[in-house]
Amino acid sequence: MPIRIPDHLPAHKTLEREGIVVMDSTRAARQDIRPLQIGLLNLMPNKERTETQFTRLIGATPLQVDLTLVRVTDHKSKNTPEDYLKTFYRTWEEVRRQKFDGFIVTGAPIANLPFEEVRYWPEMIDILNWTQTHVHHTMFICWGAQAALHHFHGARRYRMEKKAFGVYRHKVVKPASPYLRGFSDDLAVPVSRYNDIERESLSPDLEVLIDSPEVGLCMLDDPKHRAVHMLNHLEYDNRSLADEYERDQKAALGTPPPVNLFPNDDPAQVPENRWRSHAFLLFQNWINVIYQTTPFELEQIGE
């Protein structure tokens, strides 16, 4: 089944070229089923690129999905025109009375700031608490996962000796998890972060699903809060890390090339995507878990 996204969203043409079936509002209205309601809280500066990455993965499900793009209310974007945001996004204040089957909270480029110093942290706390009453299941990504682990579990993060930057091998720890159905025993995962979570601070309510001896925790299950926490970036396209590297080069930050991304470790070569299949599997599994467990009546979510 198709994914329904806002009419005229730029991601529409990209997805159609890739064979993802996209539905307009008129056609969706004739479907005699209840579509899954999924929200995407996009905290990344490049809104268009991030929304395309996630809609690509969500749109591969055989179920009909209505996607709502959400932004924090108390934040002015420096990288996305306000007209674009007003056309395609709703603020959290505008959706806070809605119920969602699934909700995704992305990463954010604020790794060096303590949580409490993030300008929109008070609203972020409200959003995290709101997921417990208005969302059936939440996927937290990167900084979003760190924030949720800090808020819900008091997990402590620490700054690593050097930035984990590249494509690293990871081990599946819990192959029986419904979120990892069909996963290989080990997999390549894009990583771009300065921080990791202290294992000693993890709550017993959490279960590690994917791990790496080289770069640390990757994915955790949080059944108590009906959530999964993905600290890395299976949603990335093949240029995400390469573009970040080029940006750092222009800023003279001295960032080394991302490991295991370019053929022969040559930044002049086209990056290889070796994680795409697992990205699609993860989101199809996540949506399937939501479909199997969410109430048929949307308003019953959270009750």
Rank of each mutant, 00 (worst) to 15 (best):
P45M: 13
R96C: 14
T91M: 05
V21C: 06
T68Q: 07
S77E: 10
S77T: 05
T91N: 02
F54P: 00
D24M: 02
K47F: 10
I38M: 07
V21Y: 06
W92R: 03
A28R: 11
D66P: 03
Y84V: 15
D24A: 03
Y84N: 04
W92S: 09
E94K: 01
S77L: 04
T26V: 14
M23G: 10
V70R: 03
I58K: 02
W92V: 08
D74W: 08
L63D: 08
P81R: 10
T91H: 02
L36A: 02
D83S: 13
N42C: 01
T61I: 08
A60M: 13
E82K: 11
T61Y: 11
T87Q: 11
P35F: 06
N46W: 11
T73C: 10
N42E: 05
M44H: 07
Y89L: 10
Q64N: 04
E48N: 07
Q31M: 14
E48F: 01
L41S: 10
P62C: 04
Q37Y: 09
P81T: 01
N46F: 12
T61D: 14
R96K: 15
R34T: 13
T52K: 09
F54G: 00
E82H: 11
Y84A: 09
H75P: 07
A28G: 05
P35N: 09
L67G: 01
E51M: 09
V65R: 03
S25V: 05
A28K: 06
D83H: 06
L41K: 00
K78A: 14
K76Q: 12
E82Y: 03
Q31V: 15
L40D: 05
L67V: 14
E94D: 03
T26I: 15
R30L: 11
S25W: 09
T61A: 15
Y84F: 15
Y84I: 13
Q53R: 12
P62H: 01
V95E: 08
T55S: 04
A28E: 02
E82S: 12
T87M: 04
L67W: 02
Y89T: 08
R56W: 05
K78T: 09
F88I: 12
